[in-house]
C-alpha cells in the first residue's frame, strides 16, 4: 500500500530525528539508508536507546518492498522477528551492529546478493547461511571469534568474499572451488595452496597479518587477472622469481615483511601504479623499479636504506621515504 509506506517513513523520520536517504519505486519504498556521511558517527540511530532502536526497526520491517537496506554502524544489538518479512531484500548491510550471532531472521532472505556482517561479535556461521545461494558479495571481516567458515561451502556464486581478521589460520579447501571469485580477502592464513590457481577470475587478493607466511606458491603467478595484491604484515622473505608474470598488477602492498630484494622480473610490471615496500629490510631501492613505467606511488619508509641514495624510478613517481604523521594535512590542511 502506497500511503502506508509514506506514512511508515514519516514515522521512522520522526523517531530517527535526522534526514535519511530512501528510494521509492512508484509508491513502494525499495531502499532505505540509516547511515549518513554527514553525521560524524555515521549510524543515524547509533546513540538512540535500545527501545527507540527496536521501535524504528519494527517500522522498517513494515516496508516489505525493500530491496536495499543499510543499517551499518548503528550498534543495533538485535533484530526483531519481523525482519524475516523483508523477503525482497537484495542488499543488506548489518556491519558494526554488535551482533553476537548471524540473525536467524536472514534464513528466508533468499534474494540476497550482498550481505555485510563485518565488525560484529559473531562467533559461528550457522548452517542456513549455505542456503543463501544467490549471494555474490559476502563480508564477515573483523569477527575475530569465528574459527570456522565451513558453512559457506554452498555459496559457489560468490564473487567477493572478505574473511579479514577472522580466527581461521587455514583456508577451507572448498574456497579454492569458488571459481567466480573476483575478490578474496584473508588474514593470518599460513598456507596458500597451489589450488589458488583455480581462482582464475581473481582480481583482488589479500592475505595479511600472518607471521607464518614466508613464501608464496608459484601457482599464484598464473592468476593473470590480478590487479591488486595486499600481503602486508606477513614474514615474506622473498617473492617468486617470476612475480613479474602478473602483468596486470596495478597495486601491491608488501608493507611490514622481511624482504631484502625484488626479483628482476618486477621490471615487467608495466601497469603497476602503487607499490608499498615500507618496513622491510631493503638496503637500496630496487633498480628494476626504474622500468615500471606506470609507477605513481612508492613507499620505502622504515627500511635500512643508505643515506643520500639516488632513487631511480620513473619521473612521475612520488616516493615516500619518511612516514608521514598523518594524511590529514594533505586532505584538508591542519588548522
Amino acid at each position: 500500500m502506497s500511503t502506508s509506506d509514506f506514512a511508515t517513513l514519516e514515522k521512522i523520520r520522526r523517531r530517527v530525528g535526522r534526514p535519511f536517504r530512501f528510494e521509492m519505486d512508484r509508491e513502494r519504498c525499495v531502499a532505505l539508508d540509516l547511515t549518513s556521511g554527514e553525521h560524524i558517527w555515521s549510524g543515524l540511530i547509533r546513540h538512540h536507546s535500545q527501545n527507540d532502536k527496536d521501535e524504528i526497526l519494527a517500522l522498517v520491517c513494515q516496508l516489505d518492498g525493500l530491496k536495499k537496506l543499510n543499517l551499518r554502524r548503528n550498534h543495533l544489538g538485535r533484530l526483531p522477528e519481523a525482519f524475516a518479512d523483508l523477503t525482497k531484500l537484495e542488499e543488506l548491510n548489518l556491519g558494526s551492529n554488535t551482533l553476537g550471532i548471524i540473525p536467524p531472521q536472514l534464513r528466508g532472505l533468499k534474494r540476497l546478493k550482498y550481505l555485510h556482517l563485518g565488525n560484529n561479535y559473531i562467533t559461528t556461521v550457522p548452517e542456513f547461511v549455505s542456503e543463501l545461494q544467490g549471494l555474490e558479495y559476502f563480508t564477515l571481516h573483523k569477527n575475530i571469534r569465528i574459527k570456522s567458515v565451513e558453512n559457506l561451502a554452498g555459496l559457489r556464486q560468490l564473487k567477493h568474499l572478505n574473511l579479514h581478521y577472522l580466527n581461521l589460520h587455514r583456508l577451507p579447501q572448498f574456497i579454492y572451488e569458488f571459481r567466480s571469485l573476483v575478490t578474496l580477502t584473508l588474514w593470518n592464513v599460513r598456507e596458500i595452496k597451489d589450488e589458488i590457481a583455480y581462482l582464475t577470475n581473481l582480481e583482488f587478493f589479500s592475505d595479511c597479518g600472518c607471521p607464518g607466511l614466508r613464501t608464496l606458491p608459484d601457482s599464484l603467478l598464473t592468476l593473470r587477472k590480478l590487479r591488486m595484491i595486499r600481503l602486508f604484515q606477513n614474514n615474506l622473505e622473498s617473492l617468486p622469481k617470476n612475480f613479474g608474470d602478473l602483468e596486470n598488477l596495478e597495486e601491491l602492498s608488501l608493507y611490514q615483511n622481511q624482504l631484502v630484494r625484488l626479483p628482476d622480473s618486477f621490471a615487467k610490471l608495466r601497469k603497476l601504479r602503487k607499490l608499498n615496500l615500507a618496513w622491510n629490510r631493503f638496503r637500496s631501492v630496487p633498480a628494476c623499479l626504474a622500468q615500471c613505467a606506470a609507477l605513481e606511488w612508492l613507499a620505502v619508509f622504515e627500511n635500512p636504506l643508505k643515506h643520500g641514495e639516488v632513487v631511480a624510478v620513473p619521473s612521475q613517481t612520488k616516493v615516500l621515504k619518511v612516514w608521514p604523521f598523518t594524511t590529514l594535512a594533505q586532505e584538508e590542511g591542519v588548522k
Binding site: F232, E251, S253, N276, W323, T327, L328
Partner: peptide, 21 residues
C-alpha cells in the same frame, strides 16, 4: 592498523577532532 596505501589515517582522529573543534 595501517592498510598499505596512501591513507595513513584510521578514523578515531576524525571523530575526536570534529568534537574538539
Amino acid at each position: 592498523s595501517y592498510y598499505g596505501y596512501e591513507d595513513f589515517s584510521f578514523g578515531a582522529m576524525r571523530i575526536l577532532r570534529k568534537h574538539l573543534l
